[in-house]
Computed example of a mutant assay.
Amino acid sequence: MTIRVVLADDQPLVRTGLRVLITDAPDIEVAGEAGTGREAVTLTRETRPDVVLMDIRMPDLDGIEATRIITAGADTASARVLVLTTFDDDDHVYGALRAGASGFLVKDMAIDDILTAIRVVAAGDALIAPSVTRRLIADFAVRPDPAPAARSLNGVVTEREREVLTLVGRGLSNGEIAAELSISAATAKAHVARLFTKLGARDRVHLVIMAYEAGLVAPPN
């Protein structure tokens, strides 16, 4: 199965580089290119891609709002948005995740890492570049005390599910969660699946956000 990708970036040189990169991958193809956020929304409706590589800072409509429209639209919600960011854009990470982005790429990432990210997101998982994750955690560190949100999980998740959500918030994979809790990988996966259902999470990134907002994971000092 070929993964179809829309490239949304206001810099033609960036789009050209990404197109050349993707063209060399046998399982990924470019479905179209957009130079503004509004063009990205329109192109997503027209081409129904699997993934949209979305820059944040674009004219007409920024990447965050374009992401919100795409992930909320009945005719576009099947597309997964993978945001392209630079260090200067990282302050917008939280807003884009809340808008429905499934992952983040830093523009200077290695070629193989970018292709891997596209495949991971297309498969329904989520991915955030480590440098962006650090900034995301730092963002939570300056937010108000999230303790009241923690109480909202009472009666919603079990104690074991709370433990699993905490580990998801720390960035652990299902296999790592299994090892940490001395349970099987299948059991860990089942707990994560139940968290998706109970909390209405879109993907693993959304669970990470919920873990921080619930006060289950404390940002580092």
Rank of each mutant, 00 (worst) to 15 (best):
F140T: 07
K189T: 15
D139R: 06
M210A: 14
P49K: 01
V6T: 03
A193I: 09
L105E: 00
A96E: 05
T86K: 03
Y212W: 15
F140N: 05
R57Q: 11
I118S: 02
D88Q: 12
A179P: 04
P220T: 13
A123T: 06
E159T: 10
R98D: 07
R151K: 09
A129R: 03
I111W: 11
V30H: 07
E46K: 09
D50Y: 00
D89P: 11
G155R: 09
G155A: 12
R98F: 06
L181W: 04
K198N: 07
H191K: 08
D145G: 03
R202A: 15
A141I: 06
A179D: 07
I3A: 05
L105T: 00
V217L: 12
R151E: 11
L216D: 00
D139T: 08
A186P: 02
N221Y: 14
V142D: 12
G63R: 02
T23E: 14
R160V: 04
D55K: 02
E161Q: 12
S78L: 13
R4E: 12
I177D: 00
V20I: 15
I70T: 04
L127M: 10
S182D: 12
L13M: 11
G155T: 13
N174E: 09
T47L: 07
R194K: 11
T166Q: 12
G37D: 04
T42V: 10
M109A: 13
V81S: 03
I183T: 06
G124Y: 03
D60R: 14
L97H: 02
D60E: 15
I177Q: 02
N221V: 15
T36Q: 12
L167G: 00
H191V: 07
